[in-house]
Simulated assay, not measured.
Amino acid sequence: MKTALVLGGTRFFGKNLVKTLLSKGVKVTLATRGKTPDDFGDRVERIFLDRVEKDSVIETTRGRKWDVIFDQICYSSHGAAVAVEAFRHSTSHYVLTSTLSVYGSLEKTCYEEDFDPYKYPISYTRRENISYQEGKRQAEAVFFQKAPFSVTAVRFPIVMGKDDYTDRLRFHVEKIMHEEEIGVPAIEAEMNFISQEEAGEFLVWCAEQKLKGPINACSNGTISLKNLFSYIEQAANKTAKTTSRLTDENSSPYGVDHSWTMSNEKASFWGYSFTNLQEWLPSLIKAFVESEKKVPLS
């Protein structure tokens, strides 16, 4: 892989994806609307387009070719169809960022075969008209059923990191440090996570291997919300206040009602060595706690 186009490389683990590519000497083209600044300077080429408008994508990328295209920002069948048409002659391999959510609410560990995008019925619609879960299902279905190039769909659980703009981990840190109630339906429920650094690295690894089909990616190990809160309690020297009474203000963004886990056995079989959750999660929590201590009280 000598050249790569990245759709969505200015936020969260998209930045880690770009950093990993650059560290390997890949010539990176960053596709953006120009609304989010980045700190890559002249190390990347930038092109400006509207990801969901076919004419914009086609006109901006006409005649261009890349060894691999990474798509961090496809959330619907419409977006996938735009890419299939626009990049028909632009690449031989495509890496789509997908999600554990495609499996739905299975009360068992999720394996790749538990959702089959090759047979899933396609219903063409835009992102605003469907849920996140259905949008990602539809996106996978379009790519695997319609794309003339090979495709990898990387299914991530919740990604954690300092650059997480959703502030899901920060939500829990703030609640515990301020001794505010957290609403959780099942505090013993187990979950998988992956760090933003590993997410970026894994996407690049998939491109290097030219893996085809869906593949799960998560750090080794699971953790319950109870134990996650315990890490925060230790770092903050505070006690978590939890309740099963959920409100708009207290509901945990990790508040699943049963264990929600995935297997990374397929990727491990193909040679990827995942980190253990315990290797990075405690230090990340400590960083969030220290950051919160620096915030002035209002």
Rank of each mutant, 00 (worst) to 15 (best):
T60C: 14
S101A: 15
I47T: 12
S101G: 07
A80Y: 07
R62Y: 13
Y75L: 12
F40V: 02
T36S: 13
E85R: 01
D39H: 14
L96V: 09
G63Q: 12
R43T: 14
T32A: 09
D71H: 08
Y94L: 06
E53A: 10
T91Y: 01
E53I: 11
T61G: 04
K54S: 13
T97A: 13
Q72F: 12
A31I: 02
F70C: 05
V84D: 05
T91I: 07
K54L: 15
P37F: 03
D55E: 15
F40Q: 06
F87V: 05
A80N: 09
D50H: 06
G41R: 04
E59S: 15
R43A: 13
V57D: 05
G63Y: 10
I58W: 07
W66T: 01
V52N: 14
S90H: 12
S77W: 00
D50S: 13
V82D: 07
D50M: 06
G41A: 05
I73K: 04
S92F: 10
F48N: 12
K54V: 07
P37N: 12
R88A: 15
S56A: 11
H89F: 10
T32L: 08
S76C: 09
A31V: 04
G79Q: 01
R88V: 07
K54N: 11
A81W: 06
V82G: 05
T60Y: 05
G34M: 11
R64F: 01
K54Q: 13
R88S: 15
T36V: 15
T99R: 00
E45M: 08
R62G: 09
A83F: 14
F40L: 00
R51D: 06
Q72H: 08
I73S: 14
R43P: 03
R64C: 08
S56D: 07
E59H: 13
R33S: 14
R88I: 09
S77M: 09
Y75Q: 01
T60R: 14
P37H: 09
W66D: 02
R51P: 08
V84C: 03
V44L: 00
A80W: 04
R51N: 11
F40A: 04
F40T: 10
L96D: 08
S90D: 01
E45Y: 11
S90L: 06
K65E: 12
R62L: 13
Y94F: 15
S101F: 08
